[in-house]
Amino acid sequence: MTDRDGDGEWAGDPDRAEEWLTIGTFASRSRLSAKALRLYDRLGLLSPARVDPVSGYRFYRPAQVERARLVALLRQLDMPLATVKEIVALDDTRAAEAVQAYWTGVEERVAAQRTLVHFLRGRLSGRSSEMYEKFEIRTMEVPEQFVLCETRHTLAGDLPAFIGESLGRLEKAAQECGGIAATPFVAYHAEVTQESDGPVESCVPVADGAAARAWAGHQGRAVTARTEPARRLAYTRISKAQVVYPQIIAAYEAVERWIADQGLTIDGPCREVYFADWDTIGPDDEACDIAYPIG
């Protein structure tokens, strides 16, 4: 008995032929192409129930159709294959939660991209000055201070997690070093984007420099203790909502433009000074200073 739907012949007991679907029939029922099914087989995402050892033809069980249709639907969400593989392995309740978590991430990314489009339209249409005018630029004198620091090369997507986790670790350690002596900050020694990984340095000023050196000496190369020289900073204060990319880029550029207009020069890495409790403030509350050392 033969069936030339798709890849070729039936092989096996004719009395049990209804238990097997050729790749062509299965593709039609599952709403996936034969090419996609071969790819999913290679990835271990959706393998045939049997492969004929002689012909190499793939055969599927009717019970596999539901899983295949789920894969097809998830792929319509532009979901990466690795994520699809994780979700189809879950029970229905956890799979539903995973789909919601994935889509929440998509919506957050689209919202950020929509804001970036607005930012780019303003820049490309010559309205950059309007975007900068909403930022008030001030200056401050910061005295010499001793800081505990943690440095890492990180891309933009992992930056928020690193900032929160590293400052948390350093602030806890500061309790063993005389306490936190001034506002924590994050210094950028090079660009941090989706392609450029810094490095970034989280810094917490402490009261006891000797204790800080001793603590840092037991933490590995990423953690250091050093003297931060006295600096004059040009800065603008932004809300929690404005810390989100790309609004924060406009804040940086506003400070850069002010420095250039004043005939001053940038004298060190730019920084974000976090003076508020991030977990308790609202979107419109002041959260951070975007600052450049100036000379």
Results as ranks from 00 to 15, higher is better:
Leu159Asn: 08
Gly282Lys: 11
Met1Ala: 13
Gln100His: 14
Tyr188Pro: 05
Ser129Phe: 07
Glu191Cys: 06
Glu286Gly: 06
Lys240Tyr: 01
Phe146Glu: 03
Glu165Ile: 11
Val65Cys: 01
Phe26Arg: 05
Glu195Ile: 04
Ala72Pro: 04
Ile281Gly: 01
Arg61Cys: 02
Glu136Lys: 12
Gly44Trp: 13
Glu9His: 03
Glu9Trp: 14
Thr93Glu: 09
Leu73Tyr: 11
Met79Thr: 13
Tyr132Met: 10
Asp284Ser: 14
Trp10Arg: 12
Cys149Thr: 15
Val54Thr: 11
Gln242Ile: 04
Pro14Cys: 13
Gly126Gln: 04
Pro80Trp: 11
Phe119Val: 13
Ser129Val: 14
Ala111Asn: 05
Leu32Trp: 12
Arg114Met: 05
Val244Lys: 11
Ala36Cys: 01
Trp215Glu: 00
Glu97Met: 08
Glu136Ile: 01
Leu21Pro: 06
Thr265Asn: 05
Leu70His: 08
Ile281Leu: 07
Gly24Thr: 13
Trp258Tyr: 10
Ile290Trp: 02
Arg69Asp: 08
Leu37Phe: 12
Arg58Met: 07
Ala260His: 10
Gln194Cys: 06
Glu141Met: 07
Ala63Arg: 13
Arg69Thr: 07
Thr265Phe: 05
Ala34Glu: 12
Asp267Trp: 09
Leu167Asp: 05
Gly122His: 14
His218Ala: 15
Tyr40Trp: 07
Val192Glu: 02
Cys149Ala: 15
Ala89Asp: 12
Ala174Met: 05
Ala182Ser: 13
Gly168Val: 07
Leu21Glu: 04
Tyr252Ala: 03
Met140Pro: 00
Glu18Leu: 04
Ala216Asp: 04
Thr280Cys: 01
Pro283Cys: 08
Asp78Ala: 12
Tyr40Ser: 04
Trp10Phe: 15
Ala291Pro: 00
Ala72Thr: 06
Leu32Asn: 04
Pro293Met: 14
Asp197Pro: 15
Val51Arg: 12
Thr104Cys: 00
Leu159Tyr: 13
Gln64Asn: 05
Gly178Met: 06
Arg271Val: 01
Ala254Asn: 01
Val147Met: 11
Pro293Lys: 08
Glu136Pro: 00
Ala212Lys: 10
Ala291His: 03
Leu21Tyr: 10
Gly44Pro: 01
Leu73Trp: 07
Leu124Pro: 01
Ala287Arg: 06
Gly217Asn: 12
Ile259Phe: 14
Asp92Met: 01
Ala156Trp: 14
Ala207Pro: 02
Thr139Ser: 08
Ala101Met: 06
Ala214Gly: 04
Phe135Trp: 03
Val255Met: 07
Arg237Pro: 06
Phe26Pro: 02
Tyr102His: 14
Ile290His: 02
Val88Glu: 03
Trp20His: 08
Met79Phe: 04
Arg38Leu: 07
Glu130Trp: 00
